[in-house]
């Protein structure tokens, strides 16, 4: 009995193989383009909010969570006190496309898009500066703008003008 079961299992395996005869699942990449799923994890980029301003607020959560410590940034401050990354660089010779930075990012700024195969002659060329990381679009999240939800005021957004906010309190009033 045992022998027969082994033979039938071998046969099933062989049948699976035989079934593929004549089909092609190999893509002759890179001549043929790949059809990648939308949640594919390629290299991280920095995206912009729907108003076209950069999303990143230099909170350093991505650089803190990154297991290979390949993100390095320095916060800067605009005249209206809005935070932005003065410099932002990722060392792609260390990045493992794990996506933890994307998960940590509270503003949906850093996103893993579909570029994954890129080669360079020198290690140093893998260090991408902010200019090379910041794209012109919103990436996978077309609508989110962190500053509309946060409580801080900016140029063009006063206190109480954010989503789900009341008008500023009158602290001089003692009325019940």
């Amino acid at each position: 009995m045992r022998v027969w079961r082994n033979i039938s299992e071998l046969g099933a395996g062989l049948w699976t193989t035989l079934r593929q005869l004549g089909r092609t699942s190999t893509v002759s990449y890179p001549e043929e383009p790949l059809n990648l799923p939308p949640r594919w994890r390629g290299r991280p980029v920095l995206t912009r909010d729907p108003d076209g301003d950069e999303r990143c607020v230099a909170c350093q959560l991505c650089s803190a969570v990154c297991p290979t410590r390949c993100i390095e940034l320095q916060a800067g401050e605009r005249p209206d006190t809005r935070r932005y990354p003065l410099t932002f660089r990722i060392n792609f010779s260390r990045c493992i496309f794990c996506g933890l930075c994307e998960e940590a990012c509270p503003t949906l700024a850093i996103q893993l898009l579909d570029e994954f195969a890129f080669s360079k002659e020198h290690h140093a060329d893998f260090i991408y500066e902010k200019e090379a990381l910041l794209i012109d679009g919103t990436g996978k999240h077309p609508h989110y703008n962190f500053y509309r939800h946060s409580g801080v005021a900016l140029q063009g957004k006063d206190k109480g003008e954010g989503i789900n906010e009341k008008a500023p309190v009158n602290v001089r009033s003692n009325l019940p």
Binding site: G151, A153, K159, G160, G162, N164, E165, K166, A167, P168, V169, V171
Partner: peptide, 9 residues
């Protein structure tokens, strides 16, 4: 989930 109180700084 209601609106939040705000202050001027």
């Amino acid at each position: 989930s209601g609106p939040k109180r705000t202050y001027r700084n």
